[in-house]
Computed example of a mutant assay.
Amino acid sequence: MSESAQIKAQKMIDDNAVMVFSKSYCPYCNNTKRILDGLNAKYTAYELNQESDGDDIQAALHKMTGQRTVPNIFIGRVHIGGNSDLEAVVRNGKDGKKLEDMLKEAGAL
């Protein structure tokens, strides 16, 4: 993992209200994008398997979050986790906030 990959990953997180690090063939990633699409949320998906630096970015995310799997989701610069974590936010909220509230605060709705 290069330092430039960590800088690039952090910049994508900082510059996007919702950032989803994904792999195009991953059913969990596709479900995450379906959930966000269903809410008409603005988000950026970075398909790690389609980018030349995808492995480096994934390694940087692992170092940053402790999570190696995808999707790796950030809303308003806050690490949400993976698809099951997003589904839990849909069901139960996070810190008393529903997903729609989190997306509005982040400027994604």
Results as ranks from 00 to 15, higher is better:
Ser2Val: 12
Ser2Gly: 15
Glu3His: 14
Glu3Thr: 14
Ser4Tyr: 09
Ala5Glu: 00
Gln6Gly: 14
Lys8Asn: 12
Ala9Asn: 11
Gln10Cys: 07
Gln10Asn: 13
Met12Pro: 00
Met12Tyr: 14
Asp15Ser: 15
Asn16Leu: 12
Val18Met: 05
Met19Ala: 15
Met19Thr: 09
Val20Lys: 04
Val20Cys: 08
Val20Met: 07
Phe21Ser: 06
Ser24Asp: 06
Tyr25Asp: 05
Cys26Trp: 02
Cys26Gly: 06
Pro27Thr: 08
Pro27Tyr: 08
Tyr28Met: 00
Cys29Glu: 03
Thr32Val: 08
Arg34Trp: 06
Ile35Arg: 01
Ile35Asp: 01
Asp37Phe: 00
Asp37Met: 02
Gly38Ser: 02
Leu39Arg: 09
Leu39Asn: 03
Ala41Leu: 05
Ala41Tyr: 02
Lys42Met: 02
Lys42Phe: 00
Thr44Trp: 00
Thr44Leu: 07
Thr44Arg: 08
Thr44Phe: 01
Ala45Met: 06
Ala45Gly: 05
Leu48Phe: 05
Asn49Gln: 05
Gln50Phe: 09
Asp53Ile: 06
Asp53Glu: 12
Gly54Val: 08
Asp56His: 09
Ile57Tyr: 06
Ile57Lys: 04
Ile57Val: 14
Gln58Met: 10
Leu61Cys: 11
His62Asn: 12
Met64Asp: 08
Met64Thr: 11
Met64Gln: 15
Thr65Met: 11
Gly66Lys: 10
Arg68His: 10
Val70Glu: 01
Val70Tyr: 02
Asn72Lys: 04
Ile73Phe: 03
Phe74Gly: 03
Gly76Trp: 02
Ile80Met: 06
Ile80Asn: 02
Gly82Ala: 10
Asn83Ala: 08
Leu86Ser: 05
Ala88Leu: 04
Ala88Lys: 10
Val90Ile: 03
Arg91Asn: 09
Arg91Met: 07
Asn92Ile: 01
Gly93Pro: 10
Asp95Ser: 13
Gly96Cys: 10
Lys98Ala: 13
Glu100Pro: 00
Asp101His: 10
Lys104Arg: 15
Glu105Leu: 06
Glu105Arg: 05
Ala106Met: 07
Gly107Phe: 09
Ala108Asp: 02
Ala108Ser: 11
Leu109Asp: 01
